[in-house]
């Protein structure tokens, strides 16, 4: 067991472990909502648009977290507003905004000629997490967890049936803004561990993996959190052993977990027909409608 314990004797590895676990769990829980609402692209956009915020904060010697957070919140509001107006298609608006903001970040950063810092922003620096960073990450994790628990029934309802939400006075837009706000908070912590480019992987991959394992959202969140935790530890250990980028190692172990679970569950389904296969027979019965009914369509 020494190979498991030994790396974590160092303070920087302990910090990295706590950060990776907290971020992994937070992202897995949020990710279940994001995947269900088909908002994967939004997470990516939020992560990328933090770059100019990070750079400006870096240039003026301010807190990187706050700079990133400000940029992410502004983007979250813009995305929410654009999708509400529907004058431009949401994915188009996101595509334009996030590439533009990212380019602005790169442009600003290239003025400073500090490519080491740019690399840290792009690919994260989980081994450099400080105690104050850890406090920030814990705070965000706690806020996300509490909000997701308290507003679970509303978030769930507006995701699959926004119409019913509107009928009972629960505005789907409001819940969407709430989710975007949480996402903006979380993204800033994700950037510290795996960086701007790979943050979205933490959001999507564990949640997508958990979707193979359960048909219920709370279980998906739990499985996603467990998977993300295992992958965080595995990724850190791997990167320590072979001296590679820890962020990339964590993301890759998530990807491997996804592939393994996908293959195993597909094989399992092959030998045992799923409930959804059985129902198709029922749907055929429905298709054979009485004539007078089908006339209506």
């Amino acid at each position: 067991m020494d190979w498991l314990i030994e790396p974590f004797r160092y303070a920087f590895m302990q910090h990295a472990l706590v950060a990776a676990l907290l971020v992994g769990i937070t992202f897995a829980m949020l990710g279940v909502h994001v995947v269900q609402r088909r908002m994967a692209f939004v997470g990516d956009a939020l992560a990328h648009t933090t770059l100019p915020g990070l750079v400006v904060a870096h240039l003026f010697g301010l807190s990187l977290s706050l700079g990133g957070l400000a940029a992410a919140l502004v983007t979250a509001l813009l995305i929410g507003w654009a999708s509400r107006r529907q004058t431009i298609k949401e994915d188009t608006a996101i595509g334009v905004v996030f590439t533009g903001m990212f380019a602005l970040g790169v442009l600003l950063m290239s003025r400073t000629r500090s490519y080491r810092d740019l690399t840290h922003m792009l690919f994260g620096n989980v081994l450099g997490v400080t105690t104050s960073d850890l406090w920030f990450i814990s705070g965000v994790a706690l806020v996300v967890f509490i909000v997701l628990v308290l507003f679970h029934k509303e978030l769930e309802l507006t995701a699959f049936d926004p119409t019913h939400g509107e009928v009972i006075g629960l505005h789907a837009d409001l819940m969407r803004f709430l989710l975007l706000g949480l996402l903006a908070l979380a993204v800033v912590t994700g950037i510290q561990t795996v960086g701007v480019i790979l943050t979205n992987a933490l959001l999507i991959t564990p949640a997508a993996t958990a979707a193979f394992l359960s048909d219920r959202m709370p279980w998906r969140m739990l499985f996603g959190a467990v998977l993300a935790s295992i992958c965080s530890v595995a990724g850190l250990l791997f990167s320590y052993a072979v001296e590679t980028s820890p962020g990339a190692a964590i993301v890759l172990s998530c990807t491997v977990a996804f592939i393994v679970v996908f293959v195993v569950t597909s094989a399992f389904r092959k030998f045992r027909p799923a409930a959804s296969d059985l129902v198709q027979v029922d749907e055929l019965n429905d298709a054979a409608l009485p004539e007078e009914v089908s006339q209506c369509n």
């Binding site: 269900q36 769930e156 995701a159 699959f160 049936d161 119409t163 979707a211 359960s214 048909d215 219920r216 959202m217 998906r220």
Partner: peptide, 10 residues
């Protein structure tokens, strides 16, 4: 058609 029937809910 207004509802996302693929949503994981009982």
């Amino acid at each position: 058609g207004e509802i996302d029937w693929a949503f994981p809910i009982s």
